[in-house]
């Protein structure tokens, strides 16, 4: 009994002390360091418009439907791109449901992008991601969408492809991960590229020019680099 009580005291106080150190002090120290060193990243890489309204996160995908925007991947998160309910379809390789979904998506992708019925469609364009929040599409997926977007916006295809390339991240160090195009970032760049928005206030134009000068290298998912504007400092084109 004495031994039991001795070990019980050990167990209770070990729980208490380790909880204070590992679950109180440790996360708060990380919180402090993160908020001082990488405030924009630690708060979700949020993108704000000139009015200070949060329009999304550079790391989290959004759904796009109209022809003038590049479309994100299919999403199984909630009703689609629900960033408070992440997840994949979890449909297996021999699933009839998945088969039908992919069949429909392939047909839709061919129709909206003007492909022939024998043209292959990039896998990422017709499959749901793991998180349902995938911010990226493959460069090939962006390429097949580019003519549609260019046509809908009355832009030259070269101009659109140039923006695609500007928003493509190569694999880290040349081999880490896959090349990827951030859809939200690309679409925001497109909105800026559209001419003829006469109502745009002058301070926004200034912002846009700043962005253009920095080559859109606003710290979105890259480490904040001294000299580059962070997300909170940046601004984006007007909402459509």
């Amino acid at each position: 009994m004495k031994e039991f009580l001795a070990e019980l005291r050990g167990a209770v106080f070990a729980t208490f002390v380790l909880a204070v150190v590992c679950c109180g002090i440790y996360p708060l120290v990380v919180f402090g360091l993160a908020q001082v060193l990488f405030p924009a990243l630690a708060n979700g890489s949020l993108i704000m418009d000139a009015g200070g309204t949060v329009r999304g996160s550079g790391l989290i995908g959004q759904a796009f439907a109209s022809a003038k925007y590049f479309h994100s991947r299919p999403s199984a998160a909630g009703i689609g791109y629900d960033a408070s309910n992440s997840g994949g379809s979890n449909l297996g390789p021999t699933s009839k449901v998945l088969y039908q979904e992919i069949q429909e998506r392939v047909a839709a992708s061919r129709a909206e992008n003007g492909l022939s019925v024998s043209d292959p469609v990039p896998a990422d364009a017709v499959t749901a991601s793991a998180s349902g929040l995938d911010p990226d599409i493959s460069p090939r997926n962006a390429e097949i969408q580019a003519p549609r977007v260019a046509k809908a916006r009355g832009l030259a295809i070269e101009q659109v492809l140039k923006l695609v390339r500007a928003n493509t991240r190569p694999p880290g160090l040349g081999f880490l991960g896959a090349p990827r195009v951030n859809v939200l970032r690309l679409n925001l760049a497109l909105d800026i590229a559209v001419p003829g928005e006469q109502t745009r206030p002058s301070h926004q134009r200034g912002c846009i020019e700043n962005m253009a000068r920095s080559g859109h290298k606003i710290a979105l998912d890259a480490p904040a680099v001294a000299g580059l504007p962070t997300l909170h400092d940046s601004c984006i084109g007007p909402a459509k």
């Binding site: 379809s89 979890n90 992919i102 061919r110 292959p120 990039p122 499959t127 991601s129 990226d136 990827r180």
Partner: peptide, 20 residues
């Protein structure tokens, strides 16, 4: 099965995977 539907075969199985 999916490749016969017209999905690019060399992309592999991307269902439930992230592009990055």
């Amino acid at each position: 099965i999916h490749q016969r539907l017209g999905v690019v075969a060399s992309d592999g199985n991307m269902e439930g995977k992230e592009v990055r």
